[in-house]
Design a protein around this nucleic acid. Structure first.
Lengths: 247, 247
DNA sequence: GCAAAAGTGTTTTCACTACACCCATGT
DNA sequence: ACATGGGTGTAGTGAAAACACTTTTGC
């Protein structure tokens, strides 16, 4: 162990953001086009350095959310995702990034032309399919953020963070389908979500904007942990053998 | 946004470790008695500064595991838990800590008197009950580590990391009971774990030395994700109302 | 034999799937 | 009327809790 007079090497700390939203029933992530080196001209996740020595990490994430995405962090879901510190992850030197996951309701228009000039929503499928790439280790961070979202909507009420203040059950179903990547039975989904105590609170009025029968409106309930959880079926690549089959 | 000539403030990075193990069917955490200020003489989680600018974060965690706990990180479960950076968390200044969770099989004896003089296993209940306290924000880190362990043994094979190379099903049940804090039915547990494909692999030879019928020995199977998961029942503080009751 | 721990069978309950069917609205 | 999306009934399936019961050891 180093002795008392030894001084540890300082590092530079950044925050990076995986900001997810739903746009026309498709999962999108906010990316920016880098204006400076390294990776100038490449796509990257929004983020930046901790601004001063007294700034809390989550406050830095909130600030970047406002500066780079023009989003109000007080009304958004925001959680820490993980810390990425591979020594070679940034060619400028030892830069450690604390990644965060943010969930926003679907905004009707892309980002207004504010401080962040080159920010835009992009379907996550562009990146997961490999058609587009991301700077630094941001592909890894995006993958981790997507996996976090997929598992968290199973047993927490995180899916409501993708919706507006009030929403229909079908709206919520679109969230699950977009995040998980497959379709669900609407009738069973309808009852399943309502059977979870505290998940949804009915609000008096209905919504009649489309044709067809008007849908009841709900808002997020008081419960954050879903019991029973909304378990996703395993993808049908192969049916797992049960205990009895090995008999 | 700061202009190009602005330099971000460097911070000091540490790693802290929540090392959990089972000792006589009780969950224990490794704590050290601090020999230097701040919090001199108080209990704290093992940890230390990143040693040089090229050291990966997880390597630093492995190094601390070896230096402070005399544990070989290659045979242990080790994962990142989260990053703690409240500006006032350390009176020495801006020190950000990347906390890790480590799981060790039950060692027969406490730590050998190696580099870490004052390290000792302590039942976690001493801290969760408030009888003992921890330095810095380590109480928060411990709570987060415990919660991570509780949820991860539900849907991953993490519980096997508490066991030796080979173990009986009852050994594994003790892990679940210690981490969750309540007892399970041994007969149902016996079948439930074996019904999860890939969770356990029977090792040919059986037996073990207690009185009573000898138990079959198993080792951890190839599957890391448990499907179906080992769901814990909700604590019986109150039975949640189902959908039909609100009718 | 008896206690203790391992392992099995069986019943009941309950959640989930699949799908037929009814309801309320716009055009 | 009929298309469209919202909402309900119900039978079949499988997982899990509860618990009686059998097996295999040490003493």
């Amino acid at each position: 162990m180093p002795n008392e007079t030894w001084q540890p090497p300082p590092v530079l700390l950044t925050v990076d953001l995986v900001i997810l939203t739903l746009r026309s029933s498709t999962l999108h992530v906010l990316v920016i086009e880098r204006g400076i080196a390294p990776y100038k001209g490449h796509w990257a996740l929004p983020g930046g350095f901790i601004s001063d020595a007294g700034e809390d990490i989550v406050d830095a994430a909130r600030r970047e959310l406002r500066e780079e995405a023009d989003l109000d962090a007080t009304s958004l879901h925001l959680e820490q995702l993980g810390t990425y510190g591979r020594p070679d992850r940034d060619p400028r030197g030892r830069i450690v990034s604390v990644a965060h996951l943010a969930i926003a309701p679907g905004l009707p228009e892309p980002e207004a032309g504010t401080d962040a000039s080159a920010a835009s929503w992009c379907p996550v499928e562009e990146f997961t399919s490999g058609r587009r790439s991301l700077a630094f280790d941001h592909h890894q961070i995006l993958d981790d953020g997507l996996e976090r979202a997929r598992t968290k909507i199973e047993h927490t009420s995180l899916a409501t963070a993708f919706c507006d203040e009030t929403f229909t059950i079908t709206d919520l179903q679109r969230v699950y389908e977009a995040v998980w990547g497959f379709e669900l039975d609407p009738r069973n989904f309808y009852r399943k979500v309502q059977a979870v105590p505290g998940f949804l609170t009915p609000v008096g009025s209905d919504r009649r904007t489309t044709r067809g029968r008007p849908a009841r409106l709900f808002q997020a309930g008081p419960e954050h942990l879903l019991r029973p959880p909304m378990m996703r079926p395993l993808p049908p690549d192969q049916n797992p053998p049960t205990q009895s089959e090995t008999k």
